[in-house]
């Protein structure tokens, strides 16, 4: 397997506070990387750097061997814990947005046959995440689980090279979390995704991931705790893949499209 994303000697410093130091990683295409670590270990910083929202102080990031531009782009999809969807657009509008941006640079809106084609694609994508019956709802009318499903559909319709998840299921209750785990595993297989997920749920990290990275500080100066940054202290490839979650027989959700 070739390295899709490689980070070379990444450092992140805010003033004299070192957040990440000497992070070097190779992420293979098709892998599902879970990143865990204590609070403040720079998990989210690392994700924001891959996303392009932040620039590393030192080091370089290559995607397919090409240095990443220091801004977000359509080759990297993202789902945040919150605020991932646009409150002023319906479910369909949220999903269409990515297609409209690509196909209509000036108006960012599609009309006629192209709109119908885009709507068809968006509807298929929404059906795949279980939102096929909620096309015209607004995010404020939906539960947290449904909003995260929408955020995933919105990201996947752009066919990103790599999907970044920043504690995507952290705010959901356990039953819905299990449904979402099944969903993301299915999408990961179906769409041959490469996923990097930050989580503070260790079980989730090991259930979903093919590789688990632990970020923590190797060195610690008690008089200046901010002087040393975190790095990948454990890098565990999980050879044993759990069998794909079997079709659930008993579920908390009320209907079979998981409209939780």
């Amino acid at each position: 397997m070739s390295a899709l994303l490689s980070l070379n000697n990444i450092w992140v410093e805010y003033g004299d506070k070192v957040v990440l130091e000497r992070v070097s990683l190779e992420i293979a295409a098709g892998s599902f990387v879970s990143i865990i670590g204590p609070s403040g270990a720079g998990k989210s910083s690392l994700l924001r750097i891959i996303l392009g929202q932040e620039t590393p102080t030192r080091g370089s990031i290559l995607l397919d061997g090409i240095p990443l531009k220091p801004e977000c782009g359509p080759d990297r999809g993202v789902v945040f814990q919150r605020y991932s969807v646009f409150p002023h657009l319906s479910v369909l509008g949220n999903t269409l947005f990515g297609l409209e941006c690509a196909q209509a640079p000036f108006t960012a809106r599609l009309f006629g046959a192209r709109r119908r084609a885009a709507m068809q694609e968006a509807e298929n994508m929404l059906a795949a995440v279980g939102l096929g019956d909620s096309l015209h709802l607004y995010p404020a009318q939906m539960s947290g689980g449904m909003q995260q499903r929408l955020a995933i559909a919105q990201a996947l319709i752009k066919r990103p090279r790599i999907l970044l998840l920043d504690e995507p299921f952290g705010a959901l209750d356990p039953g819905i979390k299990a449904d979402m785990h099944a969903l993301i595993t299915r999408l990961w297989t179906d769409y041959a995704l490469t996923v990097v997920m930050v989580t503070h749920d260790i079980r989730e990290a090991f259930t979903l991931g093919t590789r688990v990275l632990t970020l923590d500080k190797r060195r610690h100066d008690p008089h200046a705790p901010h002087r040393f940054g975190a790095t990948a202290v454990y890098d565990l490839p999980l050879t044993k893949r759990i069998s794909p979650p079997k079709e659930k027989d008993k579920s908390i959700t009320l209907d079979d499209i998981c409209n939780n």
Partner: peptide
């Protein structure tokens, strides 16, 4: 997060202004 999300969906500055900022 919303601004970052829009950019990962391919929005340019203009599209971001027109479709994300203006309506809100």
């Amino acid at each position: 997060e919303q601004i970052a999300k829009a950019q990962t969906l391919g929005a340019s500055s203009w599209q971001l202004m027109l479709r994300v900022a203006l309506p809100q």
